[in-house]
Amino acid sequence: MLPAHPAAGPGPAGAALDWTHWLAATSPALAMRANAWLYPAVEIVHIAGFAVLVGAVAMFDLRVLGLGRALPVRLLAHYLLPWSVGSMLLVLPSGLLLFAAEAPDLAANRVFLLKLVLIAVAGLNALAFHAGPYRSAERWDSRAPPRARLHAVLSLLLWLTVIACGRLLAYV
């Protein structure tokens, strides 16, 4: 059993920390910490999935920004978006396992919390892009409209910052 977090106690913050201790005491979390090879293997799966996700998103965003204009945006989306969605089948379960193994520490880590917020904002940005400017993508000439390009720039910046936060977790 993990020691109680000093901030744990009555109130919403204490309840959240109690939940993280419960999660860290589950069988999958215990296995992640007990087996010398399991945590690194799950981390590799997480990084591989994230590389596919961010790689597909980045290639699409770069096309929206004007690179590779010979390839229609919708055609590129037809090939890349299934890869980004499919990569979530690797990223989500592996990320949950990694979190469970270190739940109390990660829940109290500002960099981890920032990473989660940035992922949510990146998701909202993607939804806004697809609900907005992307609906008229077949009418774009060789250049996407300014709003579409803004979404692409935001997407690239958000995902690069998510990567930086993920990497910084090893140091903070």
Rank of each mutant, 00 (worst) to 15 (best):
Y39A: 06
Y39C: 08
P40C: 15
P40E: 08
A41I: 11
A41S: 13
A41Q: 11
V42D: 05
V42Q: 02
V42I: 14
V42M: 13
E43T: 06
E43K: 15
E43C: 15
V45N: 09
H46I: 12
H46K: 15
I47P: 04
I47N: 09
I47K: 12
G49I: 08
G49V: 09
G49F: 11
G49R: 07
F50V: 09
A51K: 00
V52N: 04
V52F: 15
V52K: 09
V54Q: 00
V54G: 00
G55P: 01
G55T: 01
A56T: 11
A56L: 10
A56M: 09
A56P: 04
A56N: 08
A56H: 05
V57I: 13
V57H: 12
V57Q: 07
A58I: 13
M59R: 14
F60N: 04
L62Y: 12
R63E: 00
R63Q: 03
V64Y: 10
L65M: 07
G66Q: 03
G66W: 04
G66T: 06
G66E: 07
L67S: 13
G68P: 08
G68L: 03
G68T: 06
R69V: 08
R69M: 05
A70K: 13
L71Q: 06
L71H: 05
P72Q: 04
V73M: 04
V73N: 02
V73I: 06
V73A: 07
L75V: 12
L75Y: 08
L76Q: 11
L76S: 13
A77Y: 06
H78V: 07
H78S: 11
H78R: 13
L80K: 05
L81R: 09
L81N: 07
L81Q: 06
P82G: 09
P82C: 13
P82M: 09
W83H: 14
W83M: 15
S84R: 02
S84I: 01
S84E: 03
V85A: 10
G86N: 08
G86E: 03
G86W: 03
S87K: 12
S87H: 03
M88R: 06
L89K: 10
L90Q: 09
V91K: 14
L92C: 13
L92F: 15
L92S: 14
L92W: 15
L92E: 11
P93Y: 01
P93L: 03
P93R: 01
S94D: 00
S94P: 00
S94I: 00
G95L: 05
L96Y: 14
L96M: 14
L96R: 12
L97V: 07
L97T: 06
L98E: 01
F99R: 04
F99T: 02
A100G: 13
A101W: 00
A101M: 00
A101I: 00
A103Q: 10
